[in-house]
């Protein structure tokens, strides 16, 4: 397989250099802190802080979710690697405004260990830290073992909702409650058709036959739970959405997705899959939910959670009740996702 052409410099400095560029893209809204953390410039005193983070290479997340009504900071790891504890601690100190810090990140062993050590360092400095793990990938474990699930593109609606909630949250307990609810109501399914490559080695993260689709593929290119034959948008879309619906049904911790429910739908590209394809899949997804009487309250389409030039798509569904809807409807602004007020961007 030929090596992907990438416009980079020193392969070992990719993460540092991309974060430098990211800071510039924010036009003065954020700054670099410590080794490699992105932190908002204006965090009000007493605000319950929201810290996200994870490995780099999945842009525009996680560092692109720092912004207005979103996260206060991000601890950025190297390419596909969790941020080390010292970076987590530096970010924690910078976002802390005296009312505690909520860590919200994807459920990966490396992230959990490093954020936990970072939290221990923060607690030594009397900073109150709480952690909620994002675990939305229904293909990575059954509903009875949700604590083993990976975090994938569902992190975007989750961080959006929790970021909005954090603006008014009276304390860490209340924000943690919203975050847990958003995680519980968010489910995703992803597929991949071809791998991305690691910038430092140029090597693909996995192999797959040309006529196969990897079902349940992770965003680091972790092999999926099974391979299915290459398909069409109209065949694949309901197949994937069925898995989300079934998961809500099978899970005793939530109600089934039913007629009259409102959802936020994320149609995500893993990197190389085009907007054209996402839109064709969205067209089918609309029919799918319409025929079940499930109301698509809002849609986000695009490359949000990526793995380099991986081809693939994921659907994420967040069921929003009145409380979550209120937070979803608040405007927000960041590199990853910007939302005007209300569904149509009504500025009134």
């Amino acid at each position: 397989m030929s090596v992907q052409k990438k416009l980079i410099n020193d392969p070992l400095k990719v993460a540092d250099e991309l974060v430098e560029g990211l800071i510039e893209a924010y036009n003065g809204e954020v700054r670099m802190v410590g080794t490699r953390s992105v932190v908002k410039n204006s965090i009000p005193d007493g605000k319950v802080a929201l810290l996200v983070g994870g490995g780099s290479g999945h842009e525009p997340i996680y560092h692109g979710l720092v912004g207005r009504n979103l996260a206060d900071g991000a601890a950025c790891g190297d390419i596909f690697a969790a941020p080390p504890p010292n970076i987590v601690f530096e970010a924690t100190e910078a976002v802390n405004k005296g009312n505690g810090v909520l860590y919200l990140y994807g459920n990966y062993a490396g992230d959990v260990m490093n954020f936990d050590i970072g939290a221990e360092m923060a607690e030594d400095e009397d900073i109150d830290v709480r952690t909620v793990l994002i675990a939305d990938d229904v293909c990575s474990a059954p509903p009875t073992e949700k604590d083993k699930r990976r975090g994938i593109a569902g992190l975007v609606p989750i961080v959006k909702i929790v970021g909005a909630a954090s603006q008014k949250a009276p304390n860490l307990d209340e924000l943690e409650k919203v975050a847990k609810k958003a995680v519980l109501e968010t489910r995703s399914v992803g597929v991949s058709m071809s791998p991305g490559s690691i910038p430092a080695t140029g090597k693909p993260t996995f192999e797959i036959e040309a006529d196969k689709i990897g079902l349940g593929m992770g965003i680091h290119g972790e092999p999926g739970v099974g391979e299915i034959p290459m398909s069409t948008a109209d065949e694949l879309t309901p197949q994937m959405l069925d898995m989300i619906i079934e998961d809500f049904e099978k899970d005793d911790d939530v109600e089934a997705l039913k007629e009259g429910d409102d959802i936020v739908l994320i149609v995500n590209s893993l990197g190389a899959t085009t907007m054209m394809e996402l839109l064709i899949c969205l067209r089918k997804a609309k029919d799918y939910f319409n025929s079940r009487g499930i109301n698509i309250h809002d849609v986000v389409v695009g490359p949000l959670v990526t793995c380099q030039e991986m081809t693939g798509i994921s659907f994420s569904v967040t069921r929003v009740d009145d409380v979550l809807k209120k937070f979803w409807n608040m405007p927000c602004q960041s590199l990853c996702y910007t939302k005007m007020t209300g569904r149509y961007g009504d500025l009134s």
Binding site: D78, F80, A81, A82, N86, G110, M113
Partner: peptide, 12 residues
């Protein structure tokens, strides 16, 4: 190792 590597390997 821990502060330069990150990831599961760095912590472990």
């Amino acid at each position: 190792m821990m502060s330069s590597m990150g990831g599961a390997s760095g912590a472990i």
